[in-house]
Structure formats: structure tokens, C-alpha cells
Computed example of a mutant assay.
Amino acid sequence: MLGTYGLLDGATPDWAGLVLLAVGAAVAVLASALAGRRVRRTRYRPDPWRAEEWAVAGCGALVAAAVRRVRGAPPPVRRPSRRSPVPACSGPRPR
């Protein structure tokens, strides 16, 4: 966190932020490696996906496919005009 602050702060030299960021990353990797030595096996057992999980994943894939298709479409499809295709309502006007 200190290294990120050092990179974003304009008052500190650029090299100081980079050094702090590199030292912080090295300490995090070393701590993870040392902590991982003590753990012999994990208790995590993934549950099989039910219909809800498959539906959510399918919706995400459908949206990704739609975005990819529209991205390759001509400009009028990507940015339709701002005019409303629905005529204005002819009902009573609010007071």
C-alpha cells in the first residue's frame, strides 16, 4: 500500500514508489510461500453446479456474445439515433 501511495503521490520521487512497491510485492510472495508450507491439504471441495449457476454463466456468455456482435456492427447499430421511435403520448397533461 505504501508503494502504491508513493507511485501516486507527486511529492515523492518515482524511484521510491517503485522500490516500495517491489519490496511489498516480494514480502507478500515470501509470506504466501512460507504460510503455504504449513498447510498439507485443503478442505475446499467445489460443489457441482446447479441450474442457477449454469443460468448465470449462460447469461454472461450471451451478453458477451451480443457485445462482440454489436462491436463489429456498423455505427447506426452501435449508436442508434436519440429520436424516440414511439410517438408522444396524447393523454391528459399533468397539471
Rank of each mutant, 00 (worst) to 15 (best):
L2E: 13
L2H: 13
Y5S: 12
G6A: 03
G6W: 00
L8D: 12
G10K: 10
T12E: 09
P13M: 05
D14E: 12
D14T: 09
D14F: 04
W15G: 01
L18M: 12
L18W: 08
L20N: 01
A25F: 08
A25L: 14
A26T: 07
A28E: 11
V29K: 04
L30W: 09
A31Y: 03
S32H: 11
S32T: 13
A33F: 06
A33H: 11
G36D: 07
R38H: 09
R38A: 14
R41M: 06
R43Q: 07
R43N: 10
Y44R: 13
Y44P: 00
Y44D: 12
W49M: 12
E52Y: 03
E52H: 08
E53P: 01
E53G: 14
W54C: 05
A57G: 06
G58K: 05
G58F: 02
C59L: 15
C59E: 15
L62H: 08
L62S: 13
L62D: 09
V63L: 15
V63P: 00
V67A: 15
R68P: 01
R69E: 13
P76N: 07
V77G: 02
R78H: 04
S81C: 11
V86W: 09
A88C: 04
A88S: 14
P92R: 10
R93M: 05
